[in-house]
């Protein structure tokens, strides 16, 4: 554990809490992509299968349980409790176009051809692109509420901080995982355009509105 890794995990946790607060307080999931949330739930469930096979630390187990349960809770709020507010007309991204290539890539490029390892690799590839339906939704509606912007910023920062963690670990521990680093770099790059808009607009008190 180093400061970048801890900050990354906390940023990830903050993102999830912000999203739940937004949905709960506004009693609405307008502007949130259910497709991205489905993908994130798949990411956590397929990645954390090792919960039952490998014990790493109490912190690790606790965080995994938090990520799985909050992603399921988010889906419940979106698809059951506040279903009427779900913006399904704009949330039209076809997730099979992400799921299938990620799965094929995990079958081809992985570190061990076992069920748990392939699903872990699949989850890493899928996480890299899981935000695309959300970014697609924002681009379709042309705007995002400020709390949704904060959510996206915290969620994007998390993998960017992990990149710093991986650089640190490479030098300090000679530890590196090429699959995670490659996917994490792609994931962070996908947020760059959003980061730019967030810093130039939302932090100056303006609403995130895309140029027409």
């Amino acid at each position: 554990m180093n400061i970048f890794r801890l900050a990354g995990d906390l940023s990830h946790l903050l993102a999830i809490i912000l999203l739940l607060i937004k949905i709960w307080k506004t009693r609405s999931c307008a502007g949130i992509s259910g497709k991205s949330q489905i993908l994130f739930a798949i990411v956590y469930i397929t990645r954390y299968l090792d919960l039952v096979t490998t014990f790493i630390s109490l912190y690790n187990t606790f965080m995994k349980l938090v990520f799985i349960s909050t992603s399921v809770a988010t889906l419940y709020l979106m698809y059951v409790k506040f279903k009427a507010t779900y913006d399904h007309n704009h949330d039209s991204f076809r997730i099979e176009f992400l799921l299938i290539p990620c799965f094929v890539l995990a079958l081809l490029i992985n570190t061990a051809f076992t069920v748990v390892e392939i699903l872990w690799t699949f989850s890493i590839y899928l996480e890299a692109v899981a935000i695309l339906p959300q970014l697609f939704l924002v681009s379709k509606t042309g705007e995002a509420e400020s709390i949704t912007s904060h959510y996206l910023f915290a969620l994007g920062s998390y993998r960017a901080l992990y990149l710093l963690n991986w650089i640190y670990r490479y030098y300090a521990e000679a530890h590196y995982d090429p699959i995670a680093i490659f996917a994490g770099a792609i994931q962070t790059i996908l947020y760059c355009d959003f980061f730019y808009l967030y810093i130039t607009k939302v932090l100056k008190g303006k609403k995130l509105q895309l140029p027409a």
Binding site: R5, T54, I56, S57, M63, K64, F67, N165, D177
Partner: peptide, 10 residues
């Protein structure tokens, strides 16, 4: 603590 088998990151 780091582990050789398994993934210690989230």
């Amino acid at each position: 603590a780091e582990v050789d088998d398994g993934h210690d990151e989230l």
